[in-house]
């Protein structure tokens, strides 16, 4: 099977060079071959684990965080918001 590394890179928002593309493709091919040796398993089972039910959180608010603490690591901040290039959808 051929891996479309370009498409994957686009999905993952990673830009790769031609040289990297060839290298990654080979390396992923190897890994995929390894993975394809997995035994076939009934895949109708769903991925739930009722033996380990989750404890839910009570709906009780906690004290708010300071905005400065939330934004202090942001590369660009303006008017109390993080800034991104203009997006219109």
């Amino acid at each position: 099977m051929k891996v479309d590394v370009k498409r994957l890179a686009k999905l993952a928002r990673i830009r790769i060079s031609e040289e990297q593309e060839v290298r990654y493709e080979q390396q992923m091919q190897d890994i995929i071959e390894m993975v394809e040796k997995l035994p076939p398993l009934e895949s109708r089972d769903s991925l739930v684990d009722p033996d380990h039910p989750m404890t839910l959180r009570k709906d009780v608010p906690s004290a708010p965080y300071k905005r400065d603490d939330i934004l202090k690591n942001a590369p660009q901040v303006q008017a109390g918001c993080v800034v991104v290039p203009k997006v219109i959808e």
């Binding site: 959180r57 009780v60 608010p61 708010p64 965080y65 905005r67 939330i70 008017a79 109390g80």
Partner: peptide
């Protein structure tokens, strides 16, 4: 556990 409130100053209802 942030408060679920509408209409507050930007980025003051988050953690």
């Amino acid at each position: 556990s942030c408060k679920n409130e509408f209409g507050f100053e930007v980025n003051t209802r988050c953690c």
